[in-house]
Write a protein that binds this DNA or RNA. Structure first.
Length: 428
RNA sequence: GGAAGGAUGCCAGAGCGGACGAAUGGGACGGCCUCGAAAGCCGUUGAGGUCCUUCGGGCCUCCGUGGGUUCGAAUCCCACUCCUUCCGCCA
């Protein structure tokens, strides 16, 4: 959520920042928000005046009663009672306007960072690092889609996954299943120097899914367990962000860094029929997420560090990759600044997004109400949040199955993974 | 799933219709004392909103959450959530 006060005091700055997102509906939304904010403050002031008077009269009633002046007390009671009606009306109006304003604010996107590149779609996202590992080109034996290799080696069985759960579910087996687990283990180990490992719940409340910005706007993208009012997490970002929701942290505790390997559930509404063949787009997958809650001044360095971590893991697996920065027109609602790491998969000849590392400024933290107090100072500030995938299993699995495919059809296991696979060097 | 008890400030804990944003103790911070410390003494110590701004204050809100009763609610009533204990079930 953006800061309404900023919209009030610096309307031009907010509007010009948001204009870079190229969303035609935004200006009208902001007009409405400004108007509602103004009305809300007028009503609040009036309501508080009436309340103040009621409080004062009530105090006097108490005094008169104690003094034994019952007649005067009853006169004051009558006066106060009459005011009560007005107070109720104003309170009801306040509630309506407040909710209306809140509803709009929940869908207004975050302000892009001044240095985020301009653009209107993903075609405008500049490559900022790389590409690495593509200089030598790729051999014919690498130009085989991972689903073919996976099925041939008996490590991928999507046909039976579909039988069990329907389209866009996948299933790995044997060394393929172990490979996915090994990738999580690797990502966890590579980030354990700075990030606390968490095993959070995978089902969360509506409030929790709202804090990260996934609700109310993107309800169709999430799986819901309606009977219990819960949602399946689309990423560990969701539970991790809310861990300190409603809390006030000490400055010395920041940055708070956490990571989690969890299953992720996505309905992929609007993508039905696309990428249905292998592991490129599935309803359920495993991912290791890294996340930081920080003071605003710590955020830029953390962002760089986290992008570097995501890249480092892909590089360690011997895969070809590049990093792009997301332009203002392609950014997610909550994003302030965002980078994607893409791995090159020669079998499908595509750059696959395997990590998205983002800085959310105070947008999510305001929704989740995560604050911190500077040492020795009074008052609190809204914290900043950042997060990114340390490793998303299916697409990296796919890239390995294609990039490391050998002329004999086997898959060479990257050195860094072998310790996690009981020393396995080849999947054959 | 059933029964009972509980939820108050950083922590413990009192308050059970009016002077309560909240006793008391502990902690933390500042000061006095001291060569220094401990002890002792004095003071400070929640959050949010809004308005004026003499930067100091006015007003409103918050005692698990949401409703209700009342001139007035931490205190009474209703619903819900969570915690504890016991029973049942169960990886």
């Amino acid at each position: 959520m953006i800061d309404v006060r900023l919209l009030r005091t610096e309307p031009a700055a907010v509007r010009s920042a948001l204009a870079r997102r190229h969303d035609p509906d935004l200006d009208a939304q902001l007009d409405l928000a400004v108007d509602l904010d103004e009305r809300l403050r007028t009503i609040t002031a009036e309501r508080d005046r009436v309340r103040s008077r009621v409080n004062e009269l009530s105090r006097q009633v108490g005094e008169r009663r104690r003094a034994g002046d019952v007649a005067r007390a009853e006169t004051l009671q009558d006066e106060s009672r009459a005011l009560g009606q007005r107070e109720r009306e104003l309170a009801a109006e306040h509630g309506r306007v407040d909710e209306e304003l809140h509803t709009i604010l929940l869908t207004v996107p975050n302000l892009p960072h001044p240095e985020a590149p301009d653009g209107s779609s993903d075609a405008d996202n500049p490559v900022v690092h790389g590409p690495f590992g593509v200089e030598a080109g790729f051999a014919e034996h690498q130009r085989v889609p991972h689903w073919e290799t996976g099925e041939a080696l008996g490590i991928l069985d999507n046909a039976r996954a579909t039988k069990i759960s329907g389209a866009m579910f996948s299933m790995t087996r044997g060394a393929g299943a172990a490979l996915g687990r090994a990738l999580c283990q690797l990502a966890l180990d590579r980030n354990a120097d700075a990030f606390e490992e968490i095993r959070p719940p995978s089902l969360v409340t509506t409030e929790t899914l709202t804090a990260t910005g996934h609700l109310p706007k993107f309800a169709d993208d999430a799986f819901a367990v309606e009977r219990d009012g819960l949602w399946a997490i689309p990423t560990a970002e969701v539970p991790l962000t809310s861990i300190y929701g409603g809390e006030i942290l000490g400055e010395e505790e920041l940055p708070r860094r956490m990571m989690a390997a969890t299953p992720c559930y996505r309905r992929e509404a609007g993508s039905a029929g696309r990428d249905t063949r292998g592991l490129l787009r599935v309803h359920e997958f495993d991912k290791v997420e890294i996340l930081a809650i920080a003071a605003p001044d710590q955020a830029p360095d953390l962002l760089d560090d986290m992008v570097g971590r995501a890249e480092g893991t892909i590089a360690a697996l011997g895969l070809a990759y590049r990093t792009i920065e997301i332009c203002t027109g392609d950014m997610g609602q909550s994003h302030h600044r965002s980078f994607d790491v893409e791995v090159y998969a020669p079998g499908v000849d595509q750059w696959l997004e395997v990590s998205s590392v983002s800085w959310f400024s105070d947008y999510q933290a305001r929704r989740a109400n995560i604050r911190f107090r500077r040492t020795g100072e009074k008052g609190t500030e809204i914290a900043h949040t950042l997060n990114g995938s340390a490793l998303a299993v299916p697409r990296v699995w796919a890239a390995i199955a294609e990039h490391h495919r050998q002329p004999d059809g086997s898959i060479a296991v990257p050195d860094v993974l072998q310790p996690y696979l009981r020393g396995l060097e080849r999947i054959a």
